[in-house]
Structures are given as structure tokens and as C-alpha cells.
Write a protein that binds this DNA or RNA. Structure first.
Length: 193
DNA sequence: CCACGGATCAGCT
DNA sequence: GCTGATCCGTGGA
């Protein structure tokens, strides 16, 4: 019995906007333990475009928590936000570029209890915490990984990124991508809560 | 050392 | 629409 393939490192090494679009419809898997396999379809992501992107944690350089983004692609960047939620990013582009894609929402497929419409809720529902920071998504044994989308290319909507108003013109870049009309997207494009 | 604010969310007005 | 919860990285003194 063969398992579905994991997205390989060469997928993550591609230009970040391509990776972000390519992740939509793909399947995020966290094998927490025996009998606990949490699976969700990625329906909303955001691209963070390196040190020059004033909305990115990489804007301060390869220091502190952001160091993982400067490392090789295909690794998880997990951080604590507001002292109580976690956010999952997937590191993209070749080592040194510090680009990443934030997973903002998934559609529950298996093993998930609770809401998943927002980056903090995704991590809570899928038990993704700091222990997975810097985890490699591309090895055969990794507990966290992404399976490629199967089926036709989905209809993709875009908007400005959420919660980065402090970043000036960078906040207006259309680097949020979502499955148009999917009910598990965190909020409608352009419509505040 | 201390102050500030954040890639969030739930709950309340 | 606004606010509080609660930790940690950054930047200034």
C-alpha cells in the first residue's frame, strides 16, 4: 500500500508566488501519533517576500525566530503570536532568500476538531506548535508534510494580506491567495470582520 | 533595563 | 466596531 507523495524540496525552492498558488488545494498532514492523523486541504495562504518585504519577520535580518526563513526551503517556520496563538509558514526559494508562505486556512478532511478559518486556528486544530519550528517537510519520516493537489487547477482569488497595515505600501501587495468561494476561507476578500 | 507592539481570536457594544 | 488576553523580539536608554 503506497502513500501519496510528499511535495519535494524542489517544489518549495520555486518562486514564492508560484509556491503559494501551488499550495492551494494541496493537503496539509500532521501525524501527531498513532491513531491521530490531522488532515486539511489548504484553502488560503499568504506570501512573505524576504527582507525587503516590510510586512515580513525577515525584515530585521537573520535573527531570532526569523532565522529559519533564511534556511533551506521545505522547512516549517512556526512562531508564537500575541502570546497565545501559533502560525505556520513553509519556507520557500533557495537558502538565503528568507521567503515563506503562511498557511491561513484549511478545509478539514480528517482528524480535525474545532475551526480552521485563520492561521491561529489552523495550528490549534492541527496541533502545530513550536516543537515543529524548523521541521523538515520533505524527508520520508517527517510528521508534518504536504501532499500535492490532485485534480484540475482551482479558481484562485487574491487580496491584500491580513493584519499587516503597519507595512505601508507592502501591506497593499496582492499576496494573499485563496480558493474562490470556499467556505473555509478566513474572511471574504476586502470584507473586514 | 524597560517600553512597545504584533502575519490573532473571542467576546462584547 | 472595539478590547483584552499574554509572550517575546526589537529598539532605545
Amino acid at each position: 500500500m503506497s502513500r501519496p507523495p510528499r511535495l519535494p524540496r524542489r517544489f518549495y525552492a520555486c518562486p514564492t508566488l508560484e509556491v503559494a498558488r501551488g499550495l492551494l488545494g494541496a493537503t496539509l498532514v500532521h501525524e501527531v501519533g498513532p491513531g491521530d492523523r490531522r488532515v486539511g486541504r489548504i484553502v488560503e495562504v499568504e506570501a512573505y517576500m524576504g527582507p525587503s518585504d516590510r510586512a515580513s519577520h525577515a525584515r530585521f535580518g537573520a535573527t531570532g525566530r526569523a532565522r529559519v526563513m533564511f534556511g533551506p526551503p521545505g522547512h516549517a517556520y512556526v512562531y508564537l503570536i500575541y502570546g497565545m496563538y501559533h502560525c505556520l509558514n513553509l519556507v520557500t526559494e533557495p537558502e538565503g532568500f528568507a521567503h515563506a508562505v503562511l498557511i491561513r486556512a484549511v478545509e478539514p478532511l480528517a482528524g480535525i476538531a474545532g475551526r480552521t478559518q485563520g492561521p491561529g486556528l489552523v495550528c490549534k486544530a492541527m496541533a502545530i506548535y513550536l516543537h515543529l519550528n524548523a521541521a523538515d517537510l520533505c524527508t520520508r519520516s517527517s510528521a508534518l508534510y504536504v501532499e500535492p493537489r490532485c485534480g484540475p487547477r482551482p479558481s484562485v482569488g487574491t487580496s491584500a494580506r491580513v493584519g499587516v497595515d503597519y507595512a505601508g505600501e507592502w501591506a497593499r501587495k496582492p499576496w494573499r491567495f485563496l480558493l474562490a468561494g470556499n467556505p473555509f476561507v478566513s474572511r471574504r476578500p476586502g470584507v473586514p470582520r
